[in-house]
């Protein structure tokens, strides 16, 4: 088996690090070689953030490069567009249809592109788009967007739900566990009809 590459992109503060931790734990528990690459520090603080997750029999590079990702999980739609060139031609894109306005748009120096989802769909790639923010609020907090999206991602991966639940129990503080389990279930149910 070759190496599978996943990219998680979003905006600093959206909880992409917890998402990659969860995914890394699931992959490790399934006996894969795993590498996860994150960037801390200046790149957070509301900036564009990316985490690379790679797994397979033997993984060398911890980073994913252009044209290499089997799947991109985008926490925000402008970030989906920004990282599109990293997707394989037959890759899959999961997008949280949320807008977070970047500073150059706030200052009026640039425009936030219109109809991003429609333009992405025209590219002929597989796209799953959903409003994860509403589902997170339904679970009890807007902060659970990351776990909702892991629920969505889980439906695209060949591991049983219990494995994900176990990883959640390992990665999330006990007092938030119920809320996060609910968020995960809502995300998973949104794509498994």
């Amino acid at each position: 088996m070759g190496t599978t590459s996943i990219i998680i992109v979003g905006v600093g503060g959206q909880g992409t690090l917890l998402a990659s931790k969860l995914l890394g734990n699931v992959l490790l528990s399934q006996g894969h070689d795993v590498k996860v690459s994150e960037v801390h520090g200046m790149s957070q603080r509301g900036g564009s953030v990316v985490t690379y997750v790679r797994y397979g029999e033997k993984v060398y590079s911890p980073i994913v490069t252009e044209g290499e990702a089997d799947l991109i999980l985008a926490f925000e739609r402008l970030e989906a567009a920004r990282w599109l060139s990293y997707l394989k031609k037959d890759g899959k894109l999961i997008v949280n249809d949320q807008r977070i306005t970047p500073m150059p748009v706030i200052t009026g120096a640039m425009e936030y592109p219109e109809n991003i989802l429609e333009k992405l769909k025209e590219k002929g790639i597989q796209i799953t788009a959903l409003d994860a923010l509403s589902l997170a609020e339904q679970a009890g907090t807007a902060k659970a967007v990351n776990v909702v999206l892991m629920g969505v991602l889980s439906a695209s991966m060949p591991f049983p739900e219990e494995i994900w639940q176990a990883a959640l129990e390992k990665c999330v503080p006990a007092k938030f566990l119920d809320m996060n389990k609910k968020a995960f279930a809502l995300g998973r149910a949104a794509v498994i009809k």
Partner: peptide, 13 residues
Amino acid sequence: TVNFEEEIPGRPP
């Protein structure tokens, strides 16, 4: 690569 042709606003920290 597949590219998004429009200019994408940067998102600095």
